[in-house]
């Protein structure tokens, strides 16, 4: 049964690469956004915090598929967007999927980081203030390093969620692993071998992510306290 797959191996590998690119791109942008959002929330200014809260509420309350469609199909409705330099990003399914996934993971990671920062013991912060740490030193040395360790195990779940969510990009014609598989199925009318292969590849990627996080947790000596 599996010999049907052999001629399509190069296409599958290119799909796999697109999936990985999409995942890493959106995770990098998403993590950056999440840190910015968390810092904004930490300032405690309502006019800064409210827009972030509304965005997080919207993202977490709506399906990712709708968000992807809003960005990919919805962006074409605005003439000013079509005429601006941003259209180079919004025109391509990869750009739209990356934006949707990045904002999505940013919203979930913000909640994660906020929780971790609130869990940093007050005494440690006070001790640093007594020792005369600057605000930046306090953030970098104590709050971020503690919060990073606390959030790491939960963040691995987020990364796996994003890997699985990249498959939705196939609905806006991106030829990621899922997209390639759907194309192959449409071409050959062979359903089962391609789905089994796709599932197998996603499971391998999952295993790799879990392995990387095990290593990271060992490196940063994360102790499971929960």
């Amino acid at each position: 049964m599996l010999d049907i797959l052999i001629p399509y191996l190069p296409a599958m590998i290119s799909g796999l690469i697109v999936t990985l690119e999409l995942m890493l791109c959106s995770l990098a942008i998403g993590l950056l956004l999440a840190i910015i959002f968390t810092l904004i929330s930490a300032t405690g200014r309502v006019y800064l915090k409210a827009p972030v809260d509304v965005l997080v509420f919207f993202i977490r309350g709506t399906p990712l598929l709708v968000q992807i469609f809003i960005i990919y199909y919805g962006s074409g409705q605005w003439a000013w967007l079509r005429n601006s330099f941003l259209w180079d990003i919004f025109r391509h399914p990869f750009g739209c999927a990356a934006i949707a996934l990045a904002v999505n993971t940013a919203a979930y990671t913000t909640a994660l980081l906020t929780g971790a920062i609130q869990a940093v013991p007050k005494g440690e912060v006070e001790a640093c203030e007594v020792l005369g740490f600057s605000r930046w030193q306090l953030l970098r040395r104590i709050i971020f390093s503690r919060a990073w360790r606390m959030a790491l195990p939960a963040y691995s779940n987020e990364v796996i969620m994003i890997l699985k969510s990249t498959s939705l990009a196939s609905t806006i014609t991106l030829l990621d692993l899922m997209g390639v598989m759907r194309q192959m199925i449409a071409r050959t009318y062979e359903v089962l071998p391609f789905f089994i292969m796709a599932g197998f590849l996603y499971l391998i990627l999952n295993g790799l992510i879990i392995g990387v996080f095990r290593l990271l947790e060992r490196k940063y000596r994360v102790v499971a306290t929960r």
Binding site: F58, T62, V66, F69, Y73, G74, W78
Partner: peptide, 27 residues
């Protein structure tokens, strides 16, 4: 809901509006 929003979006050429409505209903 998504299917109907898709239909409305393509018939009226207002995808942003109708996907946003679908998103708000989900919300």
């Amino acid at each position: 809901l998504m299917n109907k929003a898709q239909m409305a979006a393509s018939n009226t050429h207002q995808p942003f509006k109708f996907y946003m409505i679908a998103a708000l209903i989900f919300l």
